[in-house]
Design a binder for these strands. Structure first.
Length: 408
DNA sequence: CCCCGCCCTGGAGC
DNA sequence: AGCTCCAGGGCGG
């Protein structure tokens, strides 16, 4: 029997209000994959969500797992079924992509209060802070320490593949949802993740999963959410006034998260921003630290290195600059600084002035041009893998190679 | 409070 | 080939 493919639906929007090509690649989520040319897919809330975008609209479709027909009659078909007419996919997209705020207006506000934002943001419009599942964000960003986006994506993919529930296939490629805390609490998880190449993060994940599933409870984590911006399906409530260090609920969430293994200030802020809806959270990593030095006069005197005090000072400055959505504005600048988007950078930071150094060697005077650090760095740009099949193969290769290495 | 060495891994540059 | 550095850090001394 020929199966009807799931239908595509249309959600009108402009690329300045939402740009999935930037939003899905800027390192806030690690699970989206290219399922075809200009098409992104991911398992989310028990379905495969696929997206395409053009200048007028976001196109989406949901593939639900085929209902398990217990009837012993005809040959069972594993093919995905069509979404019900009245399913909640549109509501899910609106929630997940945080589509409520007027992004053009926000960009204007941020630009008006900061010349640097005004300078760098125009080529990075349409970036939305996703409202991701808190637990998934927590584990994803535990994986992110001392790591790069492509490897983090591979690790998260492996977590889903080995511990997450299968949702359905597209072109014979399986899509798994993110594993629950229970699923990652088994006795062999750490050793297994070690074999899968997680390195020292294997222990962090195993410990954190046990703490959340057995000690604190998933409810504990989810209740750290911004009540104005809750998990999917929960009613909203007011979240109080913005203080210098952020709202009360944000401060509490940040502090509570620090009790988990592998969660420091930066990872806690990522979870707050991307998983708990606290838009004033400002994760300060090496990129943001570099931005703070280059564009906001950090790196000298009291704040000459990225200490805990400096970390807080940067967040406070950004909150003073941009207010309640400081983390959102900061993410735009962060993205503008990512290597993967380096072809879009503004004006190449001008042609960097060469420092001319005059020094004496024996009798002669030698004049040489010293290339500045920034110029040198730009040479070390690697291209992110373009097509995703390549990326998936990469992931498989990693896995088999490691297991093979073990055997020998 | 700050600083340092260490932790796993893979890719890139030299 | 072999080495260094770096990639969205965290932890313990």
């Amino acid at each position: 029997m020929a199966l009807r493919a799931a239908e595509w639906h249309k959600l009108p929007t402009s690329l300045t209000e939402l740009c999935i090509n930037t939003t899905l690649r800027c390192g806030q989520s690690f699970r989206w994959r290219k399922s075809a040319e200009d098409e992104w897919s991911m398992a989310l809330h028990g379905r495969i969500l696929s997206l395409k975008q053009d200048a007028e609209a976001l196109h989406y479709r949901a593939i639900h797992p085929s209902p398990v027909t217990k009837l012993p009659t005809p040959p069972p078909s594993n093919a995905p079924s069509v979404a019900a007419e009245d399913d909640d996919t549109l509501a899910l997209i609106t929630h997940y992509f945080n589509l409520e705020p007027n992004l053009g207006q926000l960009y204007e506000q941020w630009a008006a209060s900061d010349a640097n934002f005004k300078k760098r943001a125009p080529k990075f419009t349409g970036i939305r802070i996703l409202r991701q599942d808190a637990w998934e964000a927590l584990i994803g960003f535990i994986c992110s320490s001392n790591n790069n986006i492509s490897r983090i994506s591979g690790m998260v993919h492996n977590l889903c593949l080995h511990y997450g529930p299968l949702v359905a296939h597209i072109d014979d490629i399986p899509y798994h949802d993110f594993p629950t805390p229970d699923a990652l609490s088994g006795p062999d998880v750490e050793a297994h993740l070690m074999k899968l190449g997680f390195g020292y993060r294997a222990k962090y994940i195993a410990k954190t999963a046990r703490m959340v599933s057995q000690e604190k409870g998933l409810k504990w984590l989810e209740q750290l959410s911004n009540p104005e911006c809750p998990q999917f399906g929960v009613e909203t409530q007011s979240a109080g006034e913005l203080l210098e260090g952020g709202r009360e609920g944000y401060r509490t969430a940040h502090e509570e998260l620090l009790a988990l293994h592998g969660v420091g200030s930066k990872v806690a802020d990522c979870v707050c921003l991307f998983g708990l809806g606290w838009s004033e959270a400002v994760p300060v990593d090496t990129h943001v630290w570099q931005i703070a030095q280059r564009d906001y006069r950090f790196g000298k005197g009291k704040h000459s290195s990225l200490t805990a005090a400096t970390y807080v000072a940067i967040g406070n400055l950004f909150r003073k600059l941009w207010g309640k959505e400081a983390g959102w504005a900061h993410s735009v600048l962060f993205t503008a600084d990512l290597k993967a988007f380096s072809e879009r950078v503004v004006a190449k930071t001008e042609i960097k002035e060469e420092e001319v150094v005059v020094k004496k060697e024996g009798d002669e005077t030698v004049v040489e041009n010293v290339v500045k650090k920034e110029t040198v760095k730009r040479k070390r740009i690697k291209k992110e893998p373009e097509d995703d099949e390549h990326q998936i193969l990469q992931i498989m290769k990693e896995t088999t190679r490691r297991t093979r290495r073990r055997r020998s």
